[in-house]
Design a protein around this nucleic acid. Structure first.
Lengths: 214, 214
DNA sequence: CTAGCATGGATCATCGATAATCGTGAACGA
DNA sequence: TCGTTCACGATTATCGATGATCCATGCTAG
């Protein structure tokens, strides 16, 4: 029953979670907005319990914030926190890139293909598609590192980052941003772990937002 | 109502979570054991809902594993995953230590005090207490880094519970393990971020479990 | 006029019951 | 004997309702 017309192959809380997340990413919910369990339950034609579970999962993702007896709201991310996140991501991706090179992967052709997709989305000015391709590119590297724990950490940071993109909208430079991934591919191709690590770190930090108070 | 005789200052799911966690760490539940919601609910004199929530939190901690429609069981952490975790943790703590030094903290006297506690627990052969002090020591450094995102990532690795299982295997050598933290304090005291980072990484990797298949 | 307290609505937390699902083992036929 | 089907017990997933808590509002006393 409930939210999907089809057979539900995924659990109800999962569906609700994805839908709320989509709404947040689409800007239907803004930071600070309250997410009232019974209201959402009614919207989704379910009861309170699955909604509650979905909200807890979103909290684990760092997308929303639950306060005991006081409800759930979309998290507000300050510019400072956003910059913190870039610093951490830089380290994670740097390490992942180093490991990936040591493991002899990923293949240059695969990364090139992913980069082509990214450039296509950039030229089409498709921000959502670009974000998707960008994630896919970096994920490929992290996967190639062969460390499951590292991948999990990266995934949670990635989701968090994407929810924050709303705040700092970059309307320009998508194509340039796509092209800036080229150096990562080249660095990986050199086969030098330390170099690749440094380049990956620099790539992330280069996109770290400036310290403007907002 | 329910599990505590006193006023409950912490939420019911939280209490249940802590209690189950304690039981797992005490070996009352062994890896692979099933955690049946209604049975636990009865044991704790509550209903199913809070138990369910507690189990989800434990899953987020990586202590148990929930399978859709099939229940929850105590997770087996493979040696491989544990080693992966140490690798990631080494990078996280290395970076944290570097940041902490750059920030001019934490104070040597505070770290010394934490180390004294750790040694006391080690001499008393108190594995649980040791894990507590150990995580407090490392947490102090991570906190001193002043990066909230970094701290969250570190927390999700759940060092405390992990070292508990890891440490309880090795019944002796706790004192040496405690003393091995001395070099970290010294490295921080030098005020050289790069050195401190290297030492911190080496410290974690030195305690990374060996590659024995288990 | 203001601080403190009582009251009520909104919402979260918890409950007990029901529906959906899974695994198991017995019954059955080839 | 062996594979298949099916009904049953166990457990999870979901529901609707109730209790508990928070917050805002308005009242009262000083």
């Amino acid at each position: 029953m409930a939210v999907d017309g089809e057979l539900s192959r995924t659990s109800l809380p999962e569906q609700i979670k994805d839908r709320i997340l989509a709404q947040i990413l689409a800007g239907e919910y803004r930071p600070g907005d309250r997410l009232v369990e019974l209201r959402i339950a009614e919207e989704m034609q379910t009861s309170q319990a699955p909604v509650r579970e979905a909200l807890r999962e979103l909290e684990a993702l760092g997308v929303v914030e639950c306060q005991r007896n006081k409800g759930t709201r979309v998290r507000t991310v300050s510019g400072a926190e956003l910059r913190e996140m870039y610093d951490v991501r830089a380290q994670i991706e740097g390490y992942a890139t180093e490991l990936a090179v040591r493991a002899g992967a990923p293949s240059k052709s695969m990364l090139n293909a992913l980069l082509r997709n990214m450039r296509a989305a950039a030229r089409a000015n498709d921000a959502a598609g670009f974000a998707e391709c960008n994630s896919a590119f970096h994920r490929a590297i992290v996967e190639a590192a062969g460390n499951g724990v590292l991948r999990d950490v990266w995934e949670t940071l990635n989701i968090k980052a994407r929810t924050m993109v709303n705040v700092s909208r970059r309307t320009r430079g998508l194509v340039e941003l796509a092209d800036s991934h080229r150096v990562i591919i080249d660095a990986i191709a050199t086969g030098q772990p330390t170099t690749a690590r440094r380049v990956a770190i620099e790539h992330v930090l280069a996109n770290k937002p400036a310290d403007t108070e907002d």
